[in-house]
Design a protein around this nucleic acid. Structure first.
Lengths: 324, 324
DNA sequence: CTGAAAGCGCTTACAG
DNA sequence: CTGAAAGCGCTTACAG
């Protein structure tokens, strides 16, 4: 058996309480006693048992991160910064890919209730019983749940408006919107709303393909899109993956980019993983991740948190638009 | 306070032991008693406390995954499948990015000792006290640690040999090796060994750039490589990231691929994240992940495990070689 | 089939 | 400053 606090106490000739105090670096332990205990810990090679500490403290110091897939630049980057930030607070992060499976999202909620984790960051497109979530320490990305779940998002509407206006200024006349529609109301739908508003303002016809789709279906959707709107000369793409597919498919059809077709993508460059420079709206992923974690920890500690956090995106010029 | 097993016992009028048996679906509980307990659990909305279960069972059902960065196609994909496989066994996975920081790797070992996790999968390039690792339930990817740590890798030597022979057959005369050298002995170094052997066999001059480098330094290394060996007409690149940079840099220098320069990459296509089709050696990432998890679980259960598992790669023709 | 009791390894009032 | 004791919420022999 591993050595426990009791062994240390016996070896050092003190009470277990005293050992505990030394372990936790509490003050109010005599210099000599402390040293004796420290010595005992060293010679017996003591390793505190975390499970017991958790039980007593009623906290695991673990948070869960729920993403559709990790295996995607946006989520991988998010996961990276979430983990980095959580670590600063002494938290570990459990990774869960919901991969289009609703059950796994419900599992996380169960994990919170079962005290396997102290809280969670959700990036999801599924519905949940919002009442149930309201009492859980959960932070959402890009989506509002119920009344009391704080969420972090980017300035979807404004930045999309600005991007489409840019294409218009650069001569695009037949502008389309291509996106992967979330199954539920999410801040992401603001992008489509912005598109519609700009089209209306300029009295331009609307061309939209914005479907609910699964990973793997993008190529088909893009092909359908290019067939349906073969005359487009500008497209605003909601999401990095679709942009990649569109770029490839359009190039293969012999379209010159940006001469024949301008593309702006929401979410853009994921060096070193991407194709050549997309003109894009770059989300502040790192900042979103860090904000989410610090909000979550506040919520775990029952402190007040801001419900809606909107972060600024960056408009990045690439080679897929006609730039001056 | 949350309702506990005691509350259920009282409410159902039975002992706590019986409740525990029902929760764990043990047989040997009368039909009626079981129902009473189940009822009580439902009406009191009982949620088992995982921390207490862990303490009693002396197992967390959590494993750690240590990668240099998640924010990279190879590791993201690995993480995805590791999580998927672990979930099948009822394990959660904690994600840790060591990001060139050795301390974080030591932390995981500490976590195992502290019983925060039951075991770990390591993808690392750092040194560790191998003696210390020998007693830990750890599986390594691509690298042998000490005597008793099982590892999973791919057939580095054979596939590299085959790939370079292919380039030679397609007319490459001045073939170089470009890689990011691990800081320690790893199966990855077999690639360089294979290159050297092929060069010797064909009596061709050796051109190698294989340095220890950090993320972010790739562009500089690639530029240096192209300057040093400006006459190469074939290069074997160890690693996806470097391939990307090489492709871009060579194209910018006006080299035609594959006419002027053929490229084969170890690790290749990470749809939808990559540039156009690299000819590459594709690692069986999914299989590596699943094997690693099942080995790890065996080791946690103190069963016998195979020390070295070598998986077959796939040679995938892309557009960066002259293919008949 | 079932209950009472001991114990997992800690923390934390409570006395002194 | 320090020790003895209760207790976190479970599981598991042990009796019956």
């Amino acid at each position: 058996m591993a050595t426990t606090i009791k062994d240390i106490a016996k070896y050092a000739g003190v009470g277990v309480g005293t050992v505990s105090r030394v372990i936790n670096n509490e003050k109010g332990v005599g210099q000599k006693t402390r040293e004796k205990v420290l010595d005992a810990m060293k010679t017996l090679n003591y390793q505190p048992n975390n499970m017991a500490m958790q039980l007593r403290r009623n906290a695991t110091r673990i948070i869960a991160l729920l993403v559709p897939v990790v295996n995607h630049p946006f989520f991988a980057k998010l996961a990276y910064y979430i983990e980095d930030e959580a670590d600063k607070f002494g938290y570990s992060v459990i990774l869960v890919s919901s991969q289009q499976r609703v059950e796994r999202e419900a599992e996380i909620i169960k994990k919170i209730k079962h005290r396997e984790v102290d809280g969670a960051v959700f990036v999801t497109h599924y519905m949940h019983d919002e009442k149930e979530l309201d009492n859980c320490p959960i932070i959402s990305i890009d989506r509002a749940f119920g009344e009391s779940t704080p969420y972090v998002t980017s300035d979807n509407y404004d930045s999309t408006t600005k991007a489409i206006e840019y294409m218009i200024k650069r001569g695009a006349k037949r502008i389309a919107f291509l996106g992967s529609k979330p199954e539920v109301k999410s801040e992401v739908t603001e992008r489509e709303r912005a598109y519609l508003d700009v089209m209306k303002k300029h009295d331009m016809p609307v061309r939209i393909v914005n479907e609910v789709m699964k990973h793997g279906e993008e190529a088909t959707v893009v092909a359908g899109f290019l067939e349906k709107y073969s005359d487009v000369d500008g497209v605003f793409v909601s999401g990095y993956t679709l942009s990649q597919f569109l770029y490839e498919a359009a190039t293969e059809l012999g379209k010159k980019i940006p001469e024949d077709l301008q593309i702006i993508s929401y979410d853009g460059i994921f060096k070193p993983w991407g194709i050549a420079n997309l003109t894009c709206i770059e989300q502040p992923i790192e900042e979103m991740a860090r904000q989410a974690v610090s909000l979550l920890i506040k919520k775990i500690r029952k402190e007040e948190t801001c419900i809606r956090t909107v972060l600024k995106t960056k408009f990045v010029l690439g080679t897929t638009t006609k730039n001056a």
